[in-house]
Amino acid sequence: MIRILDAGPQTTVQDLGRTGQMRYGIPPSGPVDRFAFVLANRLLGNPDTAAALECTLMGPRFEVTAAGAIAVTGADTPVTVNGQDAAGWATIMVKPGDLVKLGPARTGVRSYIGFAGGLDVPLALGSRSTYLRGRVGGLQGRALKKGDELEVFPSGPVKLRRVPRGEIPDYTGEPTVRAVPGPQADRFTPEGLRALFGGRYEVLPQSDRMGSRLRGPRIEHARGHDIISDGIALGAIQVPGDGQPIVLLVDRQSTGGYTKVATICSSDIWRVGQARPGQSLRFQSIGVEEAHRLLRESDTALEAAVREEIA
């Protein structure tokens, strides 16, 4: 069990997300950076579906009340246990009374804290993920606050594991994000598409788990920005009348009436979620088959990323 001493600006319980509820208007939720989330679990020998914490820009401070193991991945965040530096992207053994603190993220936005066994919060609609706007899942459907206590499921013996430095994602710079044109690419002018796939787009501060708002060269519509509302996939790049893109993430609305020029590949969407306000992105157009190949590559990279420590 852990006791939260300081929750940080937005720390929520997430698992891999909800399925089957979008037809009722309830989004999947789950981690914005699935890659880092899954690695936090694998460092602890957990199934990928185990619930962990997602922290935003600044992590929590908490007290450990039972022996166990944790792992911190995602945004590059200083971690200390009882004031001593501890390594990110590696298994950290903890004992009762230990004080764990995550500092402000140096790069990236979202960090993940996995717990050996996984966090024990009730399933809500088949998932432990928190959907803040819908007040459902996680701990009473809300972000953590000071004084919260979280139970952890029992876990077997934990081996010490780490992600080698070369496998740790780089959240700095100007990432190129691959996207499949459509579903409404035909509603944009050739100049509009060239702008999207040639320009730089800066992440704006009004970004959250629902979507990342970007600013850059205008993505010009050919015939109006409204469509008959349809479903919105993960990573959809929605373009309202002002020609500025909004990338829709895990807490997105299930349907909407704005044109979607392209859809970011699932294996690249974390790059958007980890880009900070002020950081820029570029887009590259690829086909569906290529996107599927990238997803297989990403699955393989996940398999290869975790190594056992050699004593």
Binding site: G182, P183, D230, L234
Partner: peptide, 18 residues
């Protein structure tokens, strides 16, 4: 059939609200 990224496809059966 309109691709909606690598995890979804939009099946459009018409272009009207009826």
């Amino acid at each position: 059939f309109l691709p909606a990224g690598d995890l979804a496809v939009c099946v459009e059966l018409g272009e009207e609200i009826s």
